[in-house]
Design a binder for these strands. Structure first.
Lengths: 192, 192
DNA sequence: ACAATTAATAGACTTGCGTCCATAAACGCA
DNA sequence: TGCGTTTATGGACGCAAGTCTATTAATTGT
């Protein structure tokens, strides 16, 4: 199971990969995703072009992994604070996401756009990034049904799609994602 | 008010514009949005490159106008059939949209992606295409509140965002949009 | 030490987008 | 008919993405 380091050939430079991811995130947050070229990234990282393409197929793949590394590969917060109502937990979760998007909203929009151009990336993005977050909300809503905080007549999966959908829809159409919108979403789900 | 045709210079060829839009839609439906290049479009239309750029800034602008021409500039159906319940009208509306997306879903995904790369296009796309359809649903839900088919405690705007959001979310993540999903959405809104 | 293997590098290359330019064509006006 | 104006055309151009190639560097095994 525990395979050792492979025995042959020059090892890949972990440093190069790290530098590329750091350069990509830094440049993108400074100038915006679309304005950062591959040439910019490799120049900043001090690495050859092919070194990037040895690891990732596109800028989107690189950025996705960089975001993974930062955000934690699976979801941000597990959210299972038994002290608070599920309603409050959902609101806190959404506010946390929206706050995070103040810095990375542009990046997320760009990744969603990239996913529309490449089916392979779309699958990787969905299973690795989107789905875990969707499930967090679905699970939370299911927990809310146990004590009757949320009616059992509701479908947690569809409600989770409503929540993420509303958030994506607003993000992609250039609307602002703030605490007020988070409260409005939660209010509509749990009742005003 | 009623300005006449402008009196000076060579007139723009309506034929060229029509040919470009037709070529774009035809090629895209055949090969998919991403696989169609500008060169393909102008070759098929039998028109010079600059002629395209005299009318539109990008492929997305061209395609958006082509879709406008086909779909009707404002929304597909006005939906105000007093015989049926609002619930049925909403379901029929969604099924109609989803059916239409069997041919143009790829195009819509591409336009949404393009909107993430260009703020100007995003605004045009939103106000010209997205918002009218969002309003149709909002208005329908408001009408549903009058006879009490939908509780007045619900917020039609947020519900419309839920509906379009769920639909976008599924479309953009590669899920299938079929009649079953339309019914599931409507069921969650109006009650199973 | 040396061979085999794999990664890193620099740079050429291809393709597509969008711009620019010079020239020809189509119109109104005199 | 000629002039001014605007569009259409074809081709050159610059830029960025991604591929490919030859060369060099780092590592293991003998």
């Amino acid at each position: 199971m525990n395979e050792k380091k492979r025995p042959v050939g020059r090892p890949t430079s972990a440093e190069a990969g790290t530098a590329l991811k750091a350069a990509a995130l830094s440049l993108i947050r400074e100038k915006g995703y679309e304005k950062v070229s591959i040439a910019d990234i490799i120049r900043t990282a001090g690495v050859a072009r092919q070194t990037l393409y040895n690891r990732w197929n596109t800028k989107a793949d690189l950025v996705l992994e960089a975001v993974f590394d930062e955000t934690g590969r699976y979801a941000a917060e597990p959210i299972s604070d038994d002290d608070r109502t599920c309603r409050d937990q959902l609101e806190a979760f959404l506010i946390g996401v929206f706050t995070h998007l103040e810095t990375d909203g542009d990046t997320l929009r760009a990744l969603i756009a990239a996913a529309q151009r490449d089916a392979e990336f779309r699958a990787a993005f969905y299973t690795g990034f989107v789905l875990p977050r969707e499930r967090m909300v679905t699970d939370l809503l299911r927990r809310a049904q146990e004590p009757g905080e949320l009616s059992r007549a509701r479908d947690p999966e569809m409600l989770s799609a409503f929540i993420h959908g509303a958030f994506w829809y607003r993000l992609l159409n250039g609307g602002s994602l703030d605490a007020g919108y988070a409260r409005a979403i939660v209010g509509e789900i749990f009742g005003g």
